[in-house]
């Protein structure tokens, strides 16, 4: 195994977050079974008191999970110099079978944790704990993922051996290869760009409409999820080519390198924040029907929608700048 402070820090975060989530799960089961706001019994008072602790603890643990995604990608990128054959994070993640599953689990936990934090934030502002069951129900769904993420990440770190010859991004994200990454890399540029900007326009329209009619929440959430997927596909299929000014280099991780001005962070951070905010806005909009949240939800949804549109705006702006500035002629 490799020994590096970043791996120690990531391990510590995973350990603390998993511990907090498991602790909270035991509590969640009692909440789902015994919560009765009308009761003034001792158990209910204890549960109400404890929910403060649990929700604060989870707030920190899941907040740390959000940061750990960033640290994980940064670490994978910085370890690339230690593996034979690795040019960027792709090679490091490919160094054993657990690298990419760990990344995908971390992304899944990122979105679910963001949603949970949002629900918690809204729940704390209603006077009668309106979302307590929903919140802890979601936690029970989140727990197995967190445990799986911590386990897979640990297996990945333990299995990192510098003498393993790994493959570089060219073989995974090559248009001639096989698998999902190669499929994405092989997408034709022109239709991909049309889909990319088409989704962006559709998202803007649906976002503006959603701000007026909260009923459109699920539609906006679906739009954000779609735009996120299309954006990732566009990065692999087209945008990366413009950045590297090379018609065959499709890697979405080389963008994180200092040589490209850390452009990847400038693209991915707004994209992930926008997608999480958009999904959250769309999914919490229907909660406005709950009496104690009627005053809270519309304002929150509007703010999140702005955040989502702003984030996607930054992403699309940067992407367009990359295309315009590039010396590569891909179309026409």
């Amino acid at each position: 195994m490799l020994m590096s402070p970043a791996l120690v820090a990531l391990g510590l975060i995973a350990f603390v977050a998993t511990g907090a989530v498991l602790l909270a799960c035991g509590f969640a089961l009692r909440i789902l079974g015994c919560w009765d706001l009308a009761s003034g019994g001792e158990l209910q008072v204890r549960l109400e008191r404890r929910t403060y602790l649990i929700s604060t603890l989870l707030g920190f643990a899941l907040g740390a999970e959000l940061l750990s995604l960033l640290l994980f990608v940064h670490t994978a990128e910085s370890l690339s110099s230690q593996f034979v054959g690795a040019m960027c994070a792709t090679g490091v993640l490919n160094a054993n079978a657990f690298g990419f599953p760990a990344l995908l689990l971390k992304i899944a936990v990122f979105f679910l944790a963001a949603l949970w934090l949002l629900l918690n934030r809204i729940d704390n502002r209603g006077y009668d704990y309106p979302l307590v069951r929903l919140k802890y129900g979601l936690l029970l769904a989140l727990a197995p993922l967190t445990v799986a993420e911590a386990t897979v990440q640990t297996l990945y770190f333990l299995g990192l051996k510098p003498d393993v010859i790994t493959s570089c991004c060219g073989s995974l994200f090559g248009a001639d290869g096989r698998g999902a990454a190669a499929e994405l890399a092989g997408l034709p540029p022109e239709p991909t760009l049309v889909a990319f900007y088409g989704t962006g326009a559709a998202l803007l329209v649906s976002g503006l409409a959603f701000r007026r009619r909260l009923r459109l929440g699920p539609l906006f959430a679906a739009g954000c999820a779609l735009a996120f997927g299309v954006a990732i596909a566009a990065i692999i299929a087209v945008l990366s080519l413009y950045v590297y000014e090379n018609p065959n280099h499709h890697c979405p991780f080389c963008l994180l390198k200092a040589g490209y001005g850390y452009l990847g962070y400038a693209l991915y951070v707004p994209l992930f924040v926008a997608a999480a905010a958009g999904l959250g806005a769309g999914l919490i909009a229907p909660l406005g029907r709950i009496a104690s949240l009627r005053a809270v939800v519309p304002g929150e949804v509007r703010r999140l929608t702005w955040l989502a549109l702003g984030g996607f705006g930054i992403f699309y702006g940067l992407a367009t700048w990359v295309i315009v500035r590039s010396n590569l002629v891909l179309l026409g």
Partner: peptide, 11 residues
């Protein structure tokens, strides 16, 4: 900075 924060502030 993220690493130092993770190993000191989280505990």
């Amino acid at each position: 900075i993220l690493i130092v924060l993770a190993v000191t502030v989280v505990p």
